[in-house]
Amino acid sequence: MVLTEAAPEALPKQRSRWPFYVCLTLLVCVVANVLVFKVPEWRNDEKLARLVERVSMFPLPPDTEPADLSVQGTVGIQSGNGNHCDYLVRRSLLTKLPDAEIARYYESAAIEGLEGRPLSGTVYVNPSGSWRDGFKGVIVEFFDGPHEPGFDMRCH
């Protein structure tokens, strides 16, 4: 057997593997971030969507119409100082009803909350006067909280 020495340029070059490991590490970090932080946000958004749907399906009182077709919902810390999730659903309406009557209608509402407890609405009347044809603007809010936040960063 004869051993020969090969020239260094004739030897095959080994590829560096560090770019592969850097990319793999970044991918693992992104997937971990989605699993730990985004999935709880998506779950809370789904709960909020169901609550918004229940508020939207609640019948309007007589002489009342929506001022805005969309119903607004928010997840996060709405009251208190942290480490819990609150859900707030807001609906903007136009009504001819007296202030006390519209307030009584929504205070007696029994919309099912996230954990089955009935929610009543709080009515805020626009103090700036009437809109058109005797209608005045009101905002009705339904608040449900506090709930366990999980890893939803909006609730910490």
Rank of each mutant, 00 (worst) to 15 (best):
G73Q: 09
G76F: 09
S79V: 13
V75P: 00
V123Y: 08
A67Y: 13
A7Q: 05
S120H: 01
V34W: 11
M153F: 11
G134T: 08
P146C: 06
D144M: 06
V71A: 09
A67G: 14
V30Q: 04
T74V: 11
L114G: 08
W42V: 09
P40E: 04
E5W: 12
D133Q: 13
G76L: 07
K47C: 03
V36F: 06
K13D: 05
K96A: 08
H156Q: 13
H147A: 00
A100P: 03
K38Y: 08
C85V: 04
L114Q: 04
P62F: 00
D68G: 00
M153W: 14
R154I: 09
N44A: 09
V138M: 11
R154K: 15
E5N: 06
P61I: 07
A6F: 10
V55A: 01
V75M: 06
R54W: 00
F143T: 03
L114F: 03
T4Y: 05
S128K: 14
E53V: 02
F135G: 01
D152A: 02
R17Y: 13
L35T: 15
E5R: 13
N81G: 11
F143K: 05
A67T: 07
V2W: 03
P149V: 12
G121I: 00
M57D: 10
W18E: 07
N81R: 11
A109P: 05
P66Y: 07
P127W: 12
V52F: 08
L48S: 02
D99F: 06
R90F: 08
R154F: 08
R154H: 04
D45Q: 13
Q72Y: 13
W131D: 14
M1D: 10
R43E: 05
L35N: 11
R154M: 04
Q78H: 06
F58C: 00
I102P: 00
Y124V: 15
L27R: 02
K13V: 11
R117E: 14
V34L: 15
P98T: 10
N83G: 04
R132G: 04
T4R: 11
T122K: 07
G113W: 09
V22K: 02
C155N: 03
A67M: 11
H147Y: 10
H147L: 03
V138F: 09
L94Y: 12
A100G: 13
R154E: 01
V52K: 05
V31Y: 14
L24E: 07
V22G: 04
G121L: 06
